[in-house]
């Protein structure tokens, strides 16, 4: 059994502003990595395109647009713009079906 016996007991704590719930500890969110990795369309079956989506990362030193899911809140996904050197967060935008109907809260 490779799955950990215990659930992940904690994640992280900076403060992110969920467009729905407001400002919360990072700990309420699940990190999902680089938001620039876009899945090829469902019709696309190019191995190279899928490989790039799954494995290639710019891993920038500076502003990073990344996905977080507010797992312990409204469960929305947000794209956070965060500086990987200072950890300063400069944006939290909603993504998903509701993104168009709501504005990023600041």
């Amino acid at each position: 059994m490779k799955r950990a016996v215990a659930p992940h007991l904690g994640t992280i704590k900076m403060r992110l502003t969920c467009p729905f719930c407001g400002e919360r500890d990072h700990q309420e969110f699940t990190y999902r990595g680089d938001a620039s990795a876009k899945r090829p369309a469902i019709e696309n079956d190019s191995i190279e395109d899928h490989r790039a989506y799954v494995f290639d990362r710019a891993n920038p030193d500076g502003d990073h647009r990344e996905l977080w899911n507010h797992t312990s809140g409204c469960r929305m996904h947000v794209v956070v713009t965060r500086n990987t050197t200072t950890h300063k967060v400069t944006g939290c935008e909603p993504v998903g079906p509701w993104a168009k109907t709501m504005k990023a809260r600041s």
Binding site: H8, L9, G10, I12, H26, Y31, E66, T86
Partner: peptide, 22 residues
């Protein structure tokens, strides 16, 4: 654990402290 998010900051955050000491 690592502090999951991408970082070059050579400093981490409190939740890992809590998790590790717990």
């Amino acid at each position: 654990n690592i502090d999951y998010y991408n970082s070059y900051a050579q400093r981490g955050n409190l939740p890992v402290w809590e998790e590790v000491t717990s």
